[in-house]
Design a protein around this nucleic acid. Structure first.
Lengths: 340, 340
DNA sequence: AGAGTCTTCCAAAGCGCTTTGGCTTTTCTG
DNA sequence: CAGAAAAGCCAAAGCGCTTTGGAAGACTCT
């Protein structure tokens, strides 16, 4: 059932039927009702391919997915996706993942924009002076950044959490508990979130006249193994830290294992606070020693990004407002006063 | 730059240019070269929206993503996606995720097929008599099932691993080591993979005149917490198992924690074998006691599914061949002879 | 009543591609 | 060398929708 058939059986022109269906004002309410009715009764659904050729609108939001034999997709992605998908569904939006060579995402961005394959895109895991952000900005497609870049000479819309604030608070708590030697086991510090977290820790330390030793900050992809290695290296040093802030729950699994392997204990010998993106399958309260966390649901962020993308597509949101969500500090058993 | 312009500047008809570009035979090789050349030089890329309206081909593969406030996307998904994306990229395929109400995926399948939004779909986590499989089969869109259904009155193409064989081997090893009371901590047993795994364990036990006690098999979503609960319940019973087979690495984190909480040890008091889908961020050899596993890369499966989808789209693969991959049994420190 | 203004609808021109059917020209065949 | 077959190209008709530019009729106003 296409528009032609429908309009023919209504003895109306395609124009009128199309307009009736799309809510244009220049059609009699009585007529509109008739059209709507017939459309529903015959299960008419406009062909999206035709519509997108005519309008350029696709009803899809895009994400460029870096791939490659050595490229691992962040497990956080799936949680973000849960939120994004949940919102997208309610607005009849689909998500298209365009796989790209991780070393050349630009080509893919250009392609999906030039081909009008999606109405908007989002960008995740941004870095300072992120080229993708600059690119989509230049290309003029609606977009939202999940996270923040830095050092760009223009403003752009983003949704981020207060990584600096979160880690500042975490560090401040540890310092208040008497810790003097803190360490940070961070994610990839080419990404802004990691930079902000480090900044937060440093700021808290500085406020008490302390510093973050150069060897006391690690930047690694967030795997259990890397958490283990980092913790092990840190704790075997002569000036081992008495408290660790860790950027991910997965890494802290490794940290906990390292602590145990070294015959140390949490929080007796070392306090631990990690960032929790809220996974349904791994919860900080269930760690052998319940883990203190800075918590922010990445799933909620996904839903929010979808919401803003939808708003931008339909013109309801304009401007370049960046929003920064506060992060909860949840204190559990893994922190205690510094050992004597 | 569109076809019209290009053909005009080549002084050829759109027909000829289109055919030259798409490799049709009825065009002079010399002409084809000229066309190809000009196309490249001017960076001509056919508009996909127009192409899909004309041909019905979209260059996209689809996946219906169950969503909802209480629905969690399986963390395995992201690894599968890595493989799928990696292959898809090399074939210029995009992946479209269509979020659906988890209680009504059918509507979404019908929509994406009716609208010709994708060239093929894949289905994951199938159940016996899976309605989605029956549906896409009936709708006639090319598809591959990742995993297997059961009890369907038609054949269909799938890529699965030998779950039954894997858990049969695992259980057989444990039995050979003298274990008599095995337990299975399984995933959701409404899904075929879990049924097959249980079947494998039972078959191995039966071969030695043993059985799987009713209370010795748990079926839960695969979270750390559920692994803990299940293990704890099992090990606190009077006829506690001396060996556990576990369906996921994440769950076994909880199992290990439970064992430790109860003052028991692996493998002294209880042997443990888990299934490993191969996550980059959590590796069985790094467990405090290196974990024996049945191993199969879900990422490879993703790539294979993409490969088969691409083949089916281009007509290179036909028929309903199901393929079943063997699974490695990797023995590490977590298994030992049964305690006296 | 005539002019002007709405209201309501329509015909037709796109959107940019593929493909059918046919028309020349060239090449082969007996 | 005539006739048939093959090669190479083209015009135009879709694909199914939106949107432009009217037009016809109804209504208002002076």
């Amino acid at each position: 059932m296409n528009l032609k058939q429908l309009s023919h059986m209504l003895a109306l022109s395609q124009t009128t039927v199309s307009r009736a269906l799309n809510g244009y004002p220049e059609v009699n309410e009585e007529t509109r009702r008739r059209v709507m009715d017939a459309a529903k009764r015959h299960g008419y659904r406009p062909n999206p391919s035709a519509r997108r050729l005519a309008t350029g609108k696709t009803g899809m939001i895009g994400y460029v997915l870096p791939t490659g034999a050595t490229v691992d997709i962040d497990p956080h992605f799936v949680e973000f996706l849960s939120g994004l998908g949940d919102y997208a569904r309610s607005h009849e939006l689909d998500l298209v993942l365009s796989p790209a060579d991780a070393d050349d995402e630009e080509t893919t961005y250009r392609r999906i924009v030039a081909n009008k394959q999606v109405d908007a895109v989002y960008i995740s895991a941004p870095r300072p002076e992120d080229r993708r952000v600059a690119l989509v900005h230049a290309l003029g497609i609606p977009f939202i950044v999940h996270g923040r870049s830095e050092g760009l000479d223009f403003d752009y819309p983003f949704t981020d959490i207060d990584n600096e604030g979160a880690f500042h608070e975490a560090a401040r708590l540890l310092i208040q508990l008497g810790h003097r030697r803190l360490a940070l086991i961070n994610g990839d510090d080419r990404e802004t979130f990691a930079i902000h977290r480090e900044r937060g820790v440093r700021r808290a330390l500085a406020a008490s006249g302390l510093t973050l030793g150069e060897r006391h900050v690690c930047s690694l992809t967030m795997t259990e193994e890397n958490g283990y290695r980092a913790a092990r290296r840190l704790l075997e040093e002569s000036d081992a830290p008495t408290a660790i802030a860790c950027s991910s729950l997965i890494m802290s699994l490794g940290v906990v294992r390292a602590v145990r392997d070294l015959g140390l204990s949490i929080p007796g010998d070392v306090s631990l606070i990690a960032h929790d993106d809220v996974f349904p399958w791994l919860r900080p309260e269930n760690f052998s020693v319940p883990l203190s966390t800075t918590r922010s649901s990445i799933r909620l962020a996904g839903a929010r990004v979808a919401e803003r993308l939808a708003a931008r597509i339909s013109g309801l949101e304009e401007g370049v407002r960046g929003e920064v969500w506060p992060v909860d500090l949840v204190v559990r058993g893994s922190v205690a006063g510094a050992p004597a």
